[in-house]
Design a protein around this nucleic acid. Structure first.
Lengths: 72, 72
DNA sequence: ATTAAATGTAAAGATATCTTTACATTTAAT
DNA sequence: ATTAAATGTAAAGATATCTTTACATTTAAT
């Protein structure tokens, strides 16, 4: 899927505001800490399923946590 | 990511309500018709990026188009 | 300054997402 | 009933997402 937009996520900001560690979050969501780290560092996007779990876990509206933005 | 939840999507219902074909939608979103079809038939979930594009295109709140449900 | 906890990163391997090409079946219009 | 448009499907290949194992660096507390 070539694309001129990219996904922005605010996971790190929300996580820090709630004083949760990557480790805690990974355990709670039953994924690895490397995955959380990679997503926060924008190595790749979470799958749709994980994205929905993240919004639920962090208790923020989905569109506030993830949204599209023009690339570059 | 082993998981006890699955993603539900209402793409087909919304698309039909708007009288749009898979072909038209695929062209507009610059993806293939096979991808739309596979997602509507639940062969797999869209990527987060495509999911966000779909909600925007169909003009529905994200959480109305995609949400988690207990598996089985 | 030392230590422990947290974060960052890398590489290999598994599965998921998406494309391309091709053909079959169903639906809608005449 | 015929035809065209739309939908369904399959297989091979490319890239993305996620795990596991391992180690390095940074941050926070003492």
């Amino acid at each position: 899927m070539k694309s001129f937009v990219k996904v922005i996520n605010h996971i790190k900001e929300v996580r820090l505001a709630k004083k949760i560690t990557q480790i805690q979050m990974a355990e709670d969501l039953q994924i690895t800490r490397q995955t959380i780290n990679a997503i926060e560092k924008n190595k790749y996007n979470p799958s749709l399923e994980l994205a929905l779990k993240l919004a639920k876990y962090l208790d923020v509206p989905f569109e506030q946590l993830f949204y599209l933005e023009e690339k570059e």
